[in-house]
Design a protein around this nucleic acid. Structure first.
Length: 580
RNA sequence: CGGGGCGUAGCGCAGCUUGGUAGCGCGCUUGCUUCGGGAGCAAGAGGUCAGGGGUUCAAAUCCCCUCGCCCCGACCA
C-alpha cells in the first residue's frame, strides 16, 4: 500500500519562476518532474506513474493494431546516416559523439535508418511482408530552444513505428491502421485532438497528418475550415485564390496604364511605399530574392501577404530555398535592398497565384529610391510560374470548398507519414515478389511524443486549483486522505479500504502525512487525483467516509463497508465505453 | 545565432539607483497549543549574494569577462 509519507512528492505552493504555461507550472508544482538542466527533466514517482499509464495505452493499441514491439539502440553509427543523406540534412539537431576509437556516433533523433537497415537484412521475401514495428524510447534532439518543460525537450520519450509493405496500396492500409490506432490512443488518454494535413519537412515523403491537441500554448499554428473537414498545419495550409485580382486603382480611364517610374526616396518597406504612394498594400507586388538550389530567383506575393517558405520548397520540389543575402540581392537587381521588382529581372520569377492577372500595381524598379506604378504583371514581367505560395491566415478561403478558414493553435502529439521508398531504396530494403522480381518496400512512419502527450493532457485538463487527470492516465486514480493518521481507527480504515481496492486492481495512494487537513485537500486538488476518499473523525463516528470526484464540488457520504464498491463503480464508469 | 530579461537560503522575492554588520514570506528543525480547505506562539538551523577579474580603506551593490536560466525571433522527424 503506497503511503504518501514514504514517497517523494514535493508539491510547491507557489508558481516556479522557470515555468510559463499552465501544464509546465503544474507538473512542477504537483511534484511530477524536476528540471536537471535546459530541456532535461527527471521524472519523480508520480510523474513516472502517469508516463507509464500513457505508455501502456500506446502499447495496447499498437499491439492491437498488429505492430511488433522492438527496442533499437539510441546510439547509432554516423555511417548509417550518411547513407540516407540525413547526417547533413539533420544538421545541428543531432547530438554527435565519438567513442574511444574515434568512431563517430549519433544519439538517435529518430530511427528510420536503423529499422530500415534491419528490414533490409532480415526481410527478403514478399512472404515476410507486411510488417509494422514500433518502440518506445528516449530520443535526443539538440533543440535550438527547449521550451515549456516536456513540450520541447532535448531528451524525450517517443513511440515510433515503421511500416513495410509490398506496394503503395498496401502501404495505404498500414497507414490507415496506424491512423486509426492513434485516434484511439488519444481518445483513451482523454485528449481532444484535431487531425491536420502536415508538411513532411526533413522527413521526406508524400503525405502526412498531424494529431494536434488544441491549446493556446500550442507551438504550431493551424487552420480549419468552417464549412468542411479541411484542416492543415500553417506550414502546409493552402488557400483558394481570389476569383479576381483587385481592380486597378486608376480604373477610371479604362485601359490599364503603362508602367511609370516614381521617385520613392528612402521607401524600403511595404508600409513606407504604400503610405508614400497612397496605395493599399494589396496593390503592391512584394518581391523577395531567394536562392533556390544555390541559384537566385525572385518570389512574388501581394504586399499584404507573407510568403510561406515551406510551400515554396514544396512547389519547387527542393529542400534548398533560402532568402538571398544582401550582396546577391544587389547583384541580381542592380539596386540596394528594398527596391526589387519583377520588371526586367532575368532570373526565374515565381509568383503567388493571388497575383495572377493583377494590373495597375506597384513594385520596386530595381533602382535606388525608385518604384514602378501601373504594372500589369503578365504584360510587364516574365513570370516563370504561378503557385500557391502565400501564408494562409484567418479568413482565407478553403482550398476544398471555398469556405472560411479559421486559425487555431495546437500541440503536435502525433505525426503519421507516408514515406514511400526513399529509405528502402537507399538502404537496400528490397524483397523478391512472387515473380522473382526485386522491389523496394514501401514505408510509412508514425510518431507519438509520449512525454509531450502527457503534458498536453494537463494543458487541456486543469483548473485554477490544479491538474484534473483523466482516470486513464492519472498517477493514481484514487487518493485516500487519512485526516487522523495517528488515530488507529482512522489509519485502520484507510488501510483496509486501500487493500480492498488493490485487491480489485485499483491503485490507491494513501495520504498518511502528519499534516493539517487543509494541506491535504490542497495537495489532492493540485495533483488532481480523479477520485478522493476522505477519512476523518466526523465521518468515522457515523461509520462513514466521503467520496468525491475531482470534477465535482460536493462529496458523497458513504458507509465504510460500501466504500470499496462505491469507488470501484466510479472507476468502472470511467474505463467503460472507451476501453472495451 | 539576433533581441530582451533574470541569477541573493530548498521555493517565491526585497536590498543594488546613492558601496559600509545580508533581509522578508513560505518551507525546514525543536517544544507547547491547535486540528475538515495552506494554524498560533516561542526557540533555532540554513548564504563562498552564479563564477572569475578589476576599481575601492571597504563590493550583493560600480566596471569588465565567463557561465546558467527564462522570454521573443530565426529553426523544428
Amino acid at each position: 500500500m503506497p503511503l504518501w509519507s514514504q514517497s517523494l512528492i514535493p508539491t510547491l505552493r507557489e508558481n516556479p519562476q522557470e515555468a510559463e504555461i499552465p501544464s509546465h507550472t503544474l507538473m512542477l508544482r504537483a511534484g511530477l518532474i524536476r528540471r536537471l538542466s535546459g530541456g532535461l527533466y527527471t521524472f519523480l514517482p508520480l510523474g513516472l506513474r502517469a508516463l507509464r499509464r500513457v505508455e501502456r495505452i500506446v502499447r495496447e493499441e499498437m499491439d492491437a493494431a498488429g505492430a511488433l514491439e522492438v527496442l533499437m539502440p539510441a546510439l547509432q553509427p554516423r555511417e548509417l546516416w550518411d547513407r540516407t543523406g540525413r547526417y547533413e540534412a539533420m544538421g545541428d539537431v543531432m547530438f554527435k559523439v565519438r567513442d574511444r576509437q574515434q568512431r563517430e556516433l549519433v544519439l538517435g533523433p529518430t530511427h528510420e535508418e536503423v529499422i530500415t537497415e534491419l528490414a533490409a537484412r532480415e526481410i527478403n521475401s514478399y512472404r515476410g511482408l507486411p510488417r509494422t514495428f514500433y518502440q518506445i524510447q528516449n530520443k535526443f534532439r539538440d533543440e535550438i530552444r527547449p521550451r515549456f518543460g516536456l513540450m520541447r525537450a532535448k531528451e524525450f520519450s517517443m513511440k515510433d513505428a515503421y511500416s513495410f509493405d509490398l506496394g503503395w496500396d498496401e502501404a495505404d492500409a498500414s497507414y490507415q491502421a496506424m491512423y486509426n490506432a492513434y485516434t484511439r490512443i488519444f481518445t483513451r488518454c482523454g485528449l481532444r485532438t484535431r487531425v491536420v494535413e502536415a508538411d513532411t519537412g526533413a522527413m521526406g515523403g508524400k503525405w502526412s497528418h498531424e494529431f494536434m491537441v488544441l491549446a493556446e500554448a500550442g507551438e504550431d499554428g493551424l487552420v480549419e475550415c468552417e464549412g468542411c473537414p479541411y484542416a492543415a498545419n500553417l506550414e502546409r495550409a493552402e488557400r483558394r485564390a481570389p476569383d479576381a485580382p483587385p481592380p486597378p486603382q486608376a480604373a477610371a480611364d479604362g485601359a490599364a496604364e503603362s508602367p511609370r517610374d516614381v521617385e520613392t526616396p528612402g521607401c524600403k518597406t511595404i508600409e513606407q511605399v504604400s503610405a508614400f504612394l497612397r496605395c493599399e498594400p494589396a496593390r503592391l507586388i512584394k518581391t523577395l530574392i531567394y536562392t533556390v538550389n544555390g541559384r537566385p530567383a525572385a518570389v512574388l506575393v501581394a504586399g499584404d501577404r507573407d510568403l510561406n517558405e515551406h510551400k515554396l520548397a514544396r512547389a519547387l520540389e527542393t529542400g534548398d530555398v533560402a532568402l538571398a543575402d544582401d550582396a546577391t540581392i544587389e547583384r541580381v537587381t542592380g539596386a540596394p535592398v528594398g527596391f526589387a521588382g519583377p520588371v526586367g529581372l532575368d532570373i526565374p520569377v515565381y509568383a503567388d497565384q493571388g497575383l495572377r492577372g493583377i494590373s495597375g500595381a506597384a513594385a520596386g524598379a530595381n533602382r535606388a529610391d525608385t518604384h514602378v506604378t501601373g504594372v500589369s504583371l503578365d504584360r510587364d514581367a516574365a513570370v516563370t510560374a504561378y503557385y500557391d505560395l502565400a501564408a494562409v491566415r484567418e479568413g482565407d478561403r478553403c482550398p476544398r470548398c471555398g469556405g472560411r478558414l479559421r486559425e487555431k493553435r495546437g500541440i503536435e502529439v502525433g505525426h503519421v507519414f507516408k514515406l514511400g521508398t526513399r529509405y528502402s531504396e537507399r538502404l537496400g530494403a528490397l524483397y523478391l515478389d512472387e515473380h522473382g522480381e526485386r522491389k523496394p518496400m514501401v514505408m510509412g512512419c508514425y510518431g507519438i511524443g509520449v512525454t509531450r502527450t502527457l503534458q498536453a493532457v494537463i494543458e487541456q485538463s486543469h483548473d485554477d486549483k490544479g491538474i484534473v487527470w483523466p482516470a486513464a492516465v492519472a498517477p493514481y486514480p484514487v487518493v485516500i486522505l487519512d485526516l487522523d493518521p495517528s488515530v488507529p481507527a482512522s489509519a485502520g480504515a484507510a488501510a483496509r479500504l486501500a487493500e480492498t481496492l488493490e485487491a480489485r486492481g485499483i491503485d490507491v495512494l494513501v495520504d498518511d502525512r502528519d499534516e493539517r487537513p487543509g494541506i491535504k485537500f490542497h495537495d489532492a486538488d493540485l495533483i488532481g487525483f480523479p477520485l478522493r476518499v476522505v477519512i476523518g473523525r466526523r465521518g468515522l463516528e457515523q461509520g462513514k467516509l466521503e467520496v468525491k470526484r475531482r470534477t465535482e464540488e460536493k462529496a458523497e457520504m458513504v458507509a465504510i463497508e460500501a466504500a470499496a464498491e462505491a469507488v470501484a463503480a466510479r472507476i468502472r464508469e470511467w474505463s467503460g465505453g472507451v476501453k472495451e
